[in-house]
Design a protein around this nucleic acid. Structure first.
Lengths: 246, 246
DNA sequence: AAGTGGTCTAGACCACGAA
DNA sequence: TCGTGGTCTAGACCACTTA
Protein backbone atom coordinates (compact mmCIF):
# COMPACT_ATOMS: atom_id res chain seq x y z
CA UNK A 1 0.00 0.00 0.00
CA UNK A 2 1.09 3.50 -0.77
CA UNK A 3 -0.23 5.01 2.43
CA UNK A 4 1.64 2.58 4.66
CA UNK A 5 4.85 3.64 2.91
CA UNK A 6 4.10 7.29 3.61
CA UNK A 7 3.41 6.47 7.23
CA UNK A 8 7.00 5.43 7.75
CA UNK A 9 8.07 9.09 8.01
CA UNK A 10 5.97 9.22 11.18
CA UNK A 11 7.91 6.39 12.78
CA UNK A 12 9.38 7.67 16.07
CA UNK A 13 13.03 7.14 16.95
CA UNK A 14 13.38 4.82 19.96
CA UNK A 15 16.86 6.18 20.67
CA UNK A 16 15.74 9.79 20.90
CA UNK A 17 15.61 11.45 24.29
CA UNK A 18 12.04 12.63 23.77
CA UNK A 19 9.32 10.09 24.57
CA UNK A 20 7.86 8.05 21.75
CA UNK A 21 4.33 9.35 22.27
CA UNK A 22 5.51 12.96 22.08
CA UNK A 23 7.52 12.37 18.93
CA UNK A 24 4.57 10.62 17.37
CA UNK A 25 2.14 13.32 18.42
CA UNK A 26 4.35 16.07 16.99
CA UNK A 27 4.88 14.25 13.73
CA UNK A 28 1.18 13.49 13.40
CA UNK A 29 0.21 17.08 14.16
CA UNK A 30 2.63 18.32 11.50
CA UNK A 31 1.32 15.79 9.01
CA UNK A 32 -2.26 16.83 9.64
CA UNK A 33 -1.42 20.52 9.33
CA UNK A 34 0.42 19.74 6.09
CA UNK A 35 -2.73 18.16 4.66
CA UNK A 36 -1.52 14.57 4.81
CA UNK A 37 -5.14 13.57 5.25
CA UNK A 38 -8.20 15.46 4.06
CA UNK A 39 -10.74 16.75 6.59
CA UNK A 40 -13.34 14.09 7.47
CA UNK A 41 -10.94 11.41 6.21
CA UNK A 42 -10.27 8.56 8.63
CA UNK A 43 -6.78 8.05 10.02
CA UNK A 44 -5.39 4.51 10.15
CA UNK A 45 -6.87 2.57 13.05
CA UNK A 46 -4.98 2.50 16.31
CA UNK A 47 -3.94 -1.10 15.77
CA UNK A 48 -2.67 -0.25 12.30
CA UNK A 49 -0.55 2.53 13.73
CA UNK A 50 0.98 0.08 16.17
CA UNK A 51 1.92 -2.42 13.48
CA UNK A 52 3.20 0.15 11.01
CA UNK A 53 5.13 2.30 13.47
CA UNK A 54 6.38 -0.33 15.88
CA UNK A 55 4.87 1.07 19.06
CA UNK A 56 2.40 -0.35 21.54
CA UNK A 57 -1.25 0.57 21.42
CA UNK A 58 -1.04 2.48 24.71
CA UNK A 59 1.71 4.65 23.27
CA UNK A 60 -0.16 5.27 20.03
CA UNK A 61 -3.28 6.17 22.00
CA UNK A 62 -1.35 8.55 24.22
CA UNK A 63 -0.13 10.38 21.12
CA UNK A 64 -3.66 10.51 19.73
CA UNK A 65 -4.96 11.74 23.10
CA UNK A 66 -2.80 14.83 22.72
CA UNK A 67 -4.12 15.48 19.22
CA UNK A 68 -7.65 15.08 20.51
CA UNK A 69 -7.02 17.62 23.25
CA UNK A 70 -5.77 20.03 20.61
CA UNK A 71 -8.97 19.51 18.65
CA UNK A 72 -7.16 18.08 15.63
CA UNK A 73 -8.97 14.74 15.54
CA UNK A 74 -12.34 13.26 16.42
CA UNK A 75 -12.83 9.72 17.67
CA UNK A 76 -15.97 7.70 17.13
CA UNK A 77 -16.15 4.42 18.97
CA UNK A 78 -16.74 1.58 16.59
CA UNK A 79 -16.14 3.77 13.54
CA UNK A 80 -12.66 5.24 13.60
CA UNK A 81 -10.49 8.31 14.11
CA UNK A 82 -11.07 11.30 11.84
CA UNK A 83 -9.51 14.61 10.97
CA UNK A 84 -11.49 17.50 12.45
CA UNK A 85 -13.67 19.01 9.68
CA UNK A 86 -12.65 22.66 9.82
CA UNK A 87 -9.11 23.21 10.92
CA UNK A 88 -9.26 26.07 13.34
CA UNK A 89 -6.29 27.17 15.36
CA UNK A 90 -7.50 28.28 18.74
CA UNK A 91 -5.31 28.95 21.71
CA UNK A 92 -6.15 28.51 25.33
CA UNK A 93 -2.50 27.76 25.62
CA UNK A 94 0.09 29.87 27.26
CA UNK A 95 1.80 31.75 24.48
CA UNK A 96 3.54 35.05 24.26
CA UNK A 97 1.88 37.88 22.46
CA UNK A 98 4.83 38.47 20.16
CA UNK A 99 4.62 34.98 18.70
CA UNK A 100 0.90 35.24 18.23
CA UNK A 101 1.20 38.53 16.39
CA UNK A 102 3.92 37.19 14.12
CA UNK A 103 1.74 34.23 13.21
CA UNK A 104 -1.01 36.60 12.21
CA UNK A 105 1.33 38.60 10.02
CA UNK A 106 1.92 41.59 12.28
CA UNK A 107 5.26 42.99 13.33
CA UNK A 108 5.30 43.06 17.12
CA UNK A 109 7.09 45.72 19.10
CA UNK A 110 7.60 46.62 22.73
CA UNK A 111 8.75 49.78 24.44
CA UNK A 112 9.71 50.01 28.09
CA UNK A 113 8.24 52.95 29.95
CA UNK A 114 9.89 51.98 33.23
CA UNK A 115 11.70 49.14 34.95
CA UNK A 116 12.17 49.69 38.65
CA UNK A 117 12.42 48.01 42.03
CA UNK A 118 9.70 49.18 44.41
CA UNK A 119 7.75 48.12 47.47
CA UNK A 120 5.06 45.62 46.58
CA UNK A 121 1.51 46.90 46.56
CA UNK A 122 -1.02 45.00 48.66
CA UNK A 123 -2.37 43.29 45.56
CA UNK A 124 1.11 42.30 44.40
CA UNK A 125 2.12 40.92 47.79
CA UNK A 126 -1.09 38.94 47.98
CA UNK A 127 -0.98 37.53 44.46
CA UNK A 128 2.71 36.66 44.60
CA UNK A 129 2.51 35.31 48.11
CA UNK A 130 5.09 37.76 49.47
CA UNK A 131 5.59 39.02 52.99
CA UNK A 132 4.37 42.58 53.64
CA UNK A 133 6.94 45.23 52.71
CA UNK A 134 8.65 42.89 50.26
CA UNK A 135 10.06 44.41 47.13
CA UNK A 136 9.11 43.64 43.56
CA UNK A 137 10.58 44.46 40.17
CA UNK A 138 7.86 46.37 38.39
CA UNK A 139 7.81 46.75 34.63
CA UNK A 140 5.67 49.04 32.53
CA UNK A 141 5.59 48.89 28.78
CA UNK A 142 3.48 49.52 25.73
CA UNK A 143 3.15 46.82 23.12
CA UNK A 144 2.71 47.56 19.45
CA UNK A 145 1.65 45.77 16.29
CA UNK A 146 2.88 47.36 13.09
CA UNK A 147 3.83 50.39 15.19
CA UNK A 148 0.30 50.89 16.48
CA UNK A 149 0.01 50.80 20.26
CA UNK A 150 -2.32 47.96 21.09
CA UNK A 151 -1.74 47.37 24.77
CA UNK A 152 -0.29 48.69 27.99
CA UNK A 153 1.19 46.13 30.31
CA UNK A 154 2.33 46.34 33.92
CA UNK A 155 4.14 43.37 35.43
CA UNK A 156 5.38 42.67 38.94
CA UNK A 157 7.98 39.99 39.73
CA UNK A 158 9.41 39.06 43.15
CA UNK A 159 12.64 41.00 43.69
CA UNK A 160 14.28 37.92 45.12
CA UNK A 161 13.86 36.07 41.85
CA UNK A 162 14.41 38.96 39.45
CA UNK A 163 16.65 41.49 41.20
CA UNK A 164 17.74 43.43 38.12
CA UNK A 165 14.77 44.25 35.84
CA UNK A 166 17.05 46.31 33.62
CA UNK A 167 18.40 43.08 32.15
CA UNK A 168 15.06 42.06 30.70
CA UNK A 169 14.97 42.38 26.94
CA UNK A 170 12.04 42.57 24.58
CA UNK A 171 10.64 39.19 25.55
CA UNK A 172 9.82 38.76 29.22
CA UNK A 173 8.99 35.10 28.88
CA UNK A 174 12.21 34.37 27.07
CA UNK A 175 14.14 36.13 29.82
CA UNK A 176 12.36 34.10 32.47
CA UNK A 177 12.99 30.83 30.62
CA UNK A 178 16.70 31.55 30.42
CA UNK A 179 16.73 32.24 34.16
CA UNK A 180 15.07 28.86 34.79
CA UNK A 181 11.93 30.70 35.87
CA UNK A 182 9.54 29.51 33.17
CA UNK A 183 5.83 30.12 33.66
CA UNK A 184 3.93 26.92 32.94
CA UNK A 185 0.47 27.81 34.17
CA UNK A 186 -1.46 31.01 34.57
CA UNK A 187 -4.83 32.18 35.79
CA UNK A 188 -6.24 35.05 33.82
CA UNK A 189 -9.20 37.24 34.65
CA UNK A 190 -10.79 39.12 31.81
CA UNK A 191 -12.89 42.20 32.29
CA UNK A 192 -14.02 45.19 30.29
CA UNK A 193 -13.23 48.73 31.40
CA UNK A 194 -13.63 52.26 30.15
CA UNK A 195 -10.28 53.86 29.40
CA UNK A 196 -9.31 56.58 31.87
CA UNK A 197 -7.29 59.60 30.81
CA UNK A 198 -3.90 58.00 31.40
CA UNK A 199 -4.73 54.85 29.46
CA UNK A 200 -6.50 56.70 26.68
CA UNK A 201 -3.43 58.85 26.13
CA UNK A 202 -1.10 55.86 26.03
CA UNK A 203 -3.12 53.88 23.49
CA UNK A 204 -4.41 56.83 21.48
CA UNK A 205 -8.11 56.28 22.07
CA UNK A 206 -10.79 58.65 23.36
CA UNK A 207 -11.46 58.65 27.09
CA UNK A 208 -14.18 56.12 27.90
CA UNK A 209 -13.36 53.73 25.05
CA UNK A 210 -14.00 50.08 25.97
CA UNK A 211 -10.80 48.11 26.57
CA UNK A 212 -10.04 44.57 27.66
CA UNK A 213 -8.44 44.35 31.06
CA UNK A 214 -6.53 41.10 31.61
CA UNK A 215 -5.18 40.26 35.04
CA UNK A 216 -2.80 37.33 34.94
CA UNK A 217 -0.98 35.46 37.70
CA UNK A 218 1.70 33.15 36.32
CA UNK A 219 2.98 30.08 38.16
CA UNK A 220 6.19 28.05 37.89
CA UNK A 221 6.37 24.28 37.64
CA UNK A 222 6.58 24.01 41.42
CA UNK A 223 3.42 26.02 41.88
CA UNK A 224 5.15 29.19 43.05
CA UNK A 225 3.53 32.44 41.87
CA UNK A 226 6.05 34.34 39.76
CA UNK A 227 4.26 37.05 37.89
CA UNK A 228 1.35 39.44 38.28
CA UNK A 229 0.47 41.28 35.11
CA UNK A 230 -2.23 43.79 34.28
CA UNK A 231 -2.74 44.22 30.55
CA UNK A 232 -4.99 46.77 28.93
CA UNK A 233 -5.83 45.93 25.34
CA UNK A 234 -7.40 47.95 22.58
CA UNK A 235 -10.31 45.69 21.75
CA UNK A 236 -10.47 46.89 18.17
CA UNK A 237 -7.02 45.46 17.52
CA UNK A 238 -7.17 42.29 19.47
CA UNK A 239 -9.72 39.88 20.74
CA UNK A 240 -9.03 37.03 23.00
CA UNK A 241 -9.86 33.50 21.88
CA UNK A 242 -10.57 30.68 24.31
CA UNK A 243 -11.37 27.08 23.69
CA UNK A 244 -13.81 25.47 26.08
CA UNK A 245 -14.25 21.77 26.67
CA UNK A 246 -16.90 19.37 27.89
CA UNK B 1 -2.39 2.94 59.40
CA UNK B 2 -5.20 5.37 59.80
CA UNK B 3 -4.73 7.00 56.43
CA UNK B 4 -4.94 3.71 54.55
CA UNK B 5 -8.29 3.06 56.24
CA UNK B 6 -9.59 6.43 55.14
CA UNK B 7 -8.45 5.73 51.63
CA UNK B 8 -10.89 2.87 51.31
CA UNK B 9 -13.75 5.31 50.68
CA UNK B 10 -11.95 6.19 47.46
CA UNK B 11 -11.99 2.62 46.21
CA UNK B 12 -13.83 2.54 42.88
CA UNK B 13 -16.59 0.02 42.19
CA UNK B 14 -15.51 -2.45 39.48
CA UNK B 15 -19.14 -3.28 38.71
CA UNK B 16 -20.14 0.31 38.05
CA UNK B 17 -20.81 1.39 34.50
CA UNK B 18 -18.47 4.38 34.77
CA UNK B 19 -14.79 3.62 34.18
CA UNK B 20 -12.55 3.03 37.15
CA UNK B 21 -10.26 5.94 36.38
CA UNK B 22 -13.20 8.36 36.19
CA UNK B 23 -14.68 7.13 39.46
CA UNK B 24 -11.31 7.44 41.11
CA UNK B 25 -10.69 10.88 39.68
CA UNK B 26 -14.06 12.16 40.86
CA UNK B 27 -13.64 10.71 44.33
CA UNK B 28 -10.15 12.10 44.62
CA UNK B 29 -11.23 15.55 43.44
CA UNK B 30 -14.03 15.56 46.01
CA UNK B 31 -11.65 14.42 48.74
CA UNK B 32 -9.18 17.17 47.87
CA UNK B 33 -11.90 19.82 47.82
CA UNK B 34 -13.12 18.54 51.17
CA UNK B 35 -9.68 19.06 52.67
CA UNK B 36 -8.75 15.41 52.94
CA UNK B 37 -5.14 16.48 52.50
CA UNK B 38 -3.64 19.83 53.36
CA UNK B 39 -2.09 22.01 50.66
CA UNK B 40 1.56 21.09 50.02
CA UNK B 41 0.94 17.70 51.62
CA UNK B 42 1.99 14.69 49.56
CA UNK B 43 -0.61 12.23 48.33
CA UNK B 44 0.12 8.50 48.65
CA UNK B 45 2.51 7.36 45.94
CA UNK B 46 1.06 5.93 42.76
CA UNK B 47 2.10 2.42 43.74
CA UNK B 48 0.45 2.83 47.13
CA UNK B 49 -2.77 3.85 45.47
CA UNK B 50 -2.65 0.69 43.36
CA UNK B 51 -2.21 -1.60 46.34
CA UNK B 52 -4.76 0.13 48.54
CA UNK B 53 -7.45 0.64 45.93
CA UNK B 54 -7.01 -2.51 43.87
CA UNK B 55 -6.37 -0.89 40.51
CA UNK B 56 -3.44 -1.03 38.14
CA UNK B 57 -0.87 1.73 38.02
CA UNK B 58 -1.96 2.80 34.54
CA UNK B 59 -5.51 3.32 35.84
CA UNK B 60 -4.36 5.21 38.92
CA UNK B 61 -2.16 7.42 36.74
CA UNK B 62 -4.99 8.12 34.34
CA UNK B 63 -7.10 9.35 37.26
CA UNK B 64 -4.24 11.52 38.51
CA UNK B 65 -3.70 12.86 34.98
CA UNK B 66 -7.19 14.32 35.09
CA UNK B 67 -6.55 15.98 38.43
CA UNK B 68 -3.32 17.40 37.10
CA UNK B 69 -5.12 18.87 34.11
CA UNK B 70 -7.55 20.51 36.50
CA UNK B 71 -4.66 22.01 38.41
CA UNK B 72 -5.51 20.19 41.64
CA UNK B 73 -2.19 18.39 42.03
CA UNK B 74 1.47 18.89 41.21
CA UNK B 75 3.82 16.05 40.35
CA UNK B 76 7.54 16.12 41.02
CA UNK B 77 9.53 13.28 39.58
CA UNK B 78 11.50 11.51 42.26
CA UNK B 79 9.69 13.35 45.04
CA UNK B 80 5.96 12.68 44.93
CA UNK B 81 2.51 14.01 44.14
CA UNK B 82 1.30 17.06 46.04
CA UNK B 83 -1.83 19.09 46.55
CA UNK B 84 -1.66 22.41 44.71
CA UNK B 85 -0.70 25.11 47.24
CA UNK B 86 -3.60 27.54 46.88
CA UNK B 87 -6.84 25.90 46.06
CA UNK B 88 -8.24 28.06 43.35
CA UNK B 89 -11.26 27.09 41.37
CA UNK B 90 -10.71 28.18 37.83
CA UNK B 91 -12.71 26.97 34.91
CA UNK B 92 -11.72 26.98 31.30
CA UNK B 93 -14.21 24.18 31.11
CA UNK B 94 -17.50 24.30 29.38
CA UNK B 95 -20.02 25.06 32.08
CA UNK B 96 -23.33 26.74 32.08
CA UNK B 97 -23.65 30.13 33.63
CA UNK B 98 -26.46 29.07 35.97
CA UNK B 99 -24.31 26.44 37.64
CA UNK B 100 -21.41 28.84 38.02
CA UNK B 101 -23.59 31.47 39.64
CA UNK B 102 -25.10 28.95 42.05
CA UNK B 103 -21.64 27.86 43.10
CA UNK B 104 -20.78 31.45 43.90
CA UNK B 105 -23.89 31.86 46.00
CA UNK B 106 -26.03 33.81 43.56
CA UNK B 107 -29.54 32.93 42.48
CA UNK B 108 -29.54 32.73 38.70
CA UNK B 109 -32.48 33.72 36.59
CA UNK B 110 -33.34 33.90 32.92
CA UNK B 111 -36.08 35.70 31.03
CA UNK B 112 -36.90 35.08 27.39
CA UNK B 113 -37.38 38.19 25.32
CA UNK B 114 -38.09 36.23 22.15
CA UNK B 115 -37.89 32.75 20.67
CA UNK B 116 -38.52 32.67 16.95
CA UNK B 117 -37.69 30.93 13.69
CA UNK B 118 -36.11 33.30 11.17
CA UNK B 119 -33.86 33.34 8.13
CA UNK B 120 -30.24 32.92 9.12
CA UNK B 121 -28.06 36.01 8.96
CA UNK B 122 -24.86 35.80 6.95
CA UNK B 123 -22.84 35.39 10.14
CA UNK B 124 -25.12 32.67 11.45
CA UNK B 125 -25.11 30.72 8.19
CA UNK B 126 -21.33 30.95 8.04
CA UNK B 127 -20.67 29.99 11.65
CA UNK B 128 -23.18 27.13 11.68
CA UNK B 129 -22.15 25.90 8.26
CA UNK B 130 -25.66 26.29 6.80
CA UNK B 131 -26.72 26.79 3.19
CA UNK B 132 -27.76 30.35 2.28
CA UNK B 133 -31.42 31.07 3.08
CA UNK B 134 -31.49 28.36 5.74
CA UNK B 135 -33.60 29.02 8.79
CA UNK B 136 -32.45 29.20 12.38
CA UNK B 137 -34.18 29.24 15.73
CA UNK B 138 -33.10 32.49 17.31
CA UNK B 139 -33.36 33.09 21.04
CA UNK B 140 -32.97 36.33 22.93
CA UNK B 141 -32.90 36.51 26.68
CA UNK B 142 -31.60 38.45 29.64
CA UNK B 143 -29.84 36.64 32.42
CA UNK B 144 -29.97 37.72 36.02
CA UNK B 145 -28.14 37.10 39.28
CA UNK B 146 -30.15 37.90 42.40
CA UNK B 147 -32.63 39.66 40.11
CA UNK B 148 -30.01 42.03 38.71
CA UNK B 149 -29.64 41.88 34.93
CA UNK B 150 -26.08 40.86 34.24
CA UNK B 151 -26.12 39.78 30.61
CA UNK B 152 -28.01 39.81 27.34
CA UNK B 153 -27.68 36.70 25.24
CA UNK B 154 -28.68 35.99 21.65
CA UNK B 155 -28.39 32.41 20.39
CA UNK B 156 -28.95 30.89 16.96
CA UNK B 157 -29.50 27.14 16.43
CA UNK B 158 -30.05 25.33 13.12
CA UNK B 159 -33.81 25.01 12.52
CA UNK B 160 -33.33 21.44 11.35
CA UNK B 161 -31.98 20.41 14.73
CA UNK B 162 -34.14 22.61 16.95
CA UNK B 163 -37.40 23.26 15.08
CA UNK B 164 -39.46 24.42 18.05
CA UNK B 165 -37.56 26.95 20.19
CA UNK B 166 -40.66 27.46 22.32
CA UNK B 167 -39.92 24.16 24.04
CA UNK B 168 -36.63 25.36 25.49
CA UNK B 169 -36.83 25.92 29.22
CA UNK B 170 -34.60 27.93 31.48
CA UNK B 171 -31.48 25.93 30.71
CA UNK B 172 -30.49 25.81 27.04
CA UNK B 173 -27.69 23.33 27.62
CA UNK B 174 -29.94 21.01 29.54
CA UNK B 175 -32.49 21.14 26.74
CA UNK B 176 -29.81 20.32 24.19
CA UNK B 177 -28.47 17.44 26.27
CA UNK B 178 -31.90 15.88 26.53
CA UNK B 179 -32.26 16.16 22.74
CA UNK B 180 -28.96 14.34 22.29
CA UNK B 181 -27.44 17.59 21.01
CA UNK B 182 -24.86 18.19 23.73
CA UNK B 183 -22.17 20.79 23.11
CA UNK B 184 -18.80 19.32 24.03
CA UNK B 185 -16.45 21.95 22.63
CA UNK B 186 -16.71 25.65 21.97
CA UNK B 187 -14.61 28.47 20.58
CA UNK B 188 -15.15 31.76 22.32
CA UNK B 189 -13.98 35.20 21.28
CA UNK B 190 -13.85 37.84 23.95
CA UNK B 191 -13.90 41.53 23.21
CA UNK B 192 -14.75 44.77 24.99
CA UNK B 193 -17.43 47.10 23.65
CA UNK B 194 -19.16 50.29 24.66
CA UNK B 195 -22.84 49.71 25.36
CA UNK B 196 -25.14 51.19 22.75
CA UNK B 197 -28.57 52.55 23.66
CA UNK B 198 -30.38 49.25 23.25
CA UNK B 199 -27.92 47.30 25.37
CA UNK B 200 -27.61 50.01 27.98
CA UNK B 201 -31.37 50.01 28.45
CA UNK B 202 -31.52 46.23 28.82
CA UNK B 203 -28.80 45.97 31.44
CA UNK B 204 -29.49 49.24 33.22
CA UNK B 205 -26.16 50.91 32.59
CA UNK B 206 -25.30 54.29 31.07
CA UNK B 207 -24.68 54.42 27.33
CA UNK B 208 -21.00 53.90 26.63
CA UNK B 209 -20.34 51.67 29.64
CA UNK B 210 -17.71 49.02 28.95
CA UNK B 211 -19.14 45.53 28.56
CA UNK B 212 -17.70 42.13 27.73
CA UNK B 213 -18.79 40.79 24.39
CA UNK B 214 -18.48 37.01 24.09
CA UNK B 215 -19.01 35.30 20.76
CA UNK B 216 -19.26 31.57 21.10
CA UNK B 217 -19.61 28.79 18.54
CA UNK B 218 -20.48 25.46 20.14
CA UNK B 219 -19.74 22.08 18.56
CA UNK B 220 -21.20 18.62 19.06
CA UNK B 221 -19.22 15.45 19.61
CA UNK B 222 -19.16 14.81 15.85
CA UNK B 223 -17.70 18.24 15.16
CA UNK B 224 -20.91 19.75 13.81
CA UNK B 225 -21.49 23.41 14.70
CA UNK B 226 -24.66 23.65 16.74
CA UNK B 227 -24.82 27.04 18.38
CA UNK B 228 -23.79 30.64 17.73
CA UNK B 229 -24.21 32.87 20.75
CA UNK B 230 -23.47 36.51 21.35
CA UNK B 231 -23.37 37.42 25.02
CA UNK B 232 -23.05 40.91 26.43
CA UNK B 233 -21.97 40.96 30.05
CA UNK B 234 -21.89 43.70 32.64
CA UNK B 235 -18.25 43.62 33.56
CA UNK B 236 -18.89 44.93 37.05
CA UNK B 237 -20.91 41.84 37.89
CA UNK B 238 -18.91 39.20 36.17
CA UNK B 239 -15.41 38.63 34.99
CA UNK B 240 -14.28 35.78 32.96
CA UNK B 241 -11.58 33.45 34.28
CA UNK B 242 -9.31 31.42 32.02
CA UNK B 243 -6.61 28.98 32.88
CA UNK B 244 -3.62 28.89 30.56
CA UNK B 245 -1.15 26.05 30.27
CA UNK B 246 2.37 25.21 29.17
C1' DA C 1 -19.37 -10.80 11.95
C1' DA C 2 -15.55 -8.06 11.74
C1' DG C 3 -13.25 -3.99 12.92
C1' DT C 4 -13.02 0.11 15.81
C1' DG C 5 -12.18 2.92 19.88
C1' DG C 6 -12.48 2.58 25.32
C1' DT C 7 -10.81 0.42 29.30
C1' DC C 8 -7.80 -2.35 32.18
C1' DT C 9 -3.96 -5.33 33.80
C1' DA C 10 0.83 -6.88 35.35
C1' DG C 11 5.18 -6.09 34.79
C1' DA C 12 9.30 -3.68 33.18
C1' DC C 13 12.98 -0.08 32.77
C1' DC C 14 14.36 4.76 33.21
C1' DA C 15 15.55 9.42 35.36
C1' DC C 16 15.26 11.89 39.16
C1' DG C 17 15.21 13.42 44.30
C1' DA C 18 16.03 12.71 49.08
C1' DA C 19 18.29 10.54 52.81
C1' DT D 1 20.50 3.50 47.89
C1' DC D 2 15.73 3.51 47.72
C1' DG D 3 11.33 5.33 46.53
C1' DT D 4 9.17 8.39 43.29
C1' DG D 5 7.00 9.79 38.97
C1' DG D 6 7.62 9.01 33.58
C1' DT D 7 7.51 5.85 29.90
C1' DC D 8 6.56 1.58 27.49
C1' DT D 9 4.97 -3.16 26.34
C1' DA D 10 1.79 -7.22 25.10
C1' DG D 11 -2.32 -8.83 25.71
C1' DA D 12 -7.14 -8.91 27.17
C1' DC D 13 -12.18 -7.80 27.31
C1' DC D 14 -15.93 -4.60 26.31
C1' DA D 15 -19.29 -1.53 23.69
C1' DC D 16 -20.07 0.26 19.63
C1' DT D 17 -20.55 0.98 14.33
C1' DT D 18 -20.76 -0.78 9.93
C1' DA D 19 -21.97 -3.92 6.65
Amino acid sequence: MQSSQKLQVLRPDPDSATPLYLQLSHKLAAAIQAGFWRPEEPLPSERNFCDLLGVSRVTARKALDLLYEQGLILRRQGAGTFITPKLEQPLSRLTNLSEMLKQRGFTPGSKWLSREVVLASAEEADSLNLAPNSRVSRLLRVRTANDVVMAVEETALPYQLVPDPGLIGDSLYEFLSVQRLAVVRALQHIAAINADERLAALVDLPVGAAMLHLTRVGYRENGQALELTHSYFRSDYYDFVVELRR
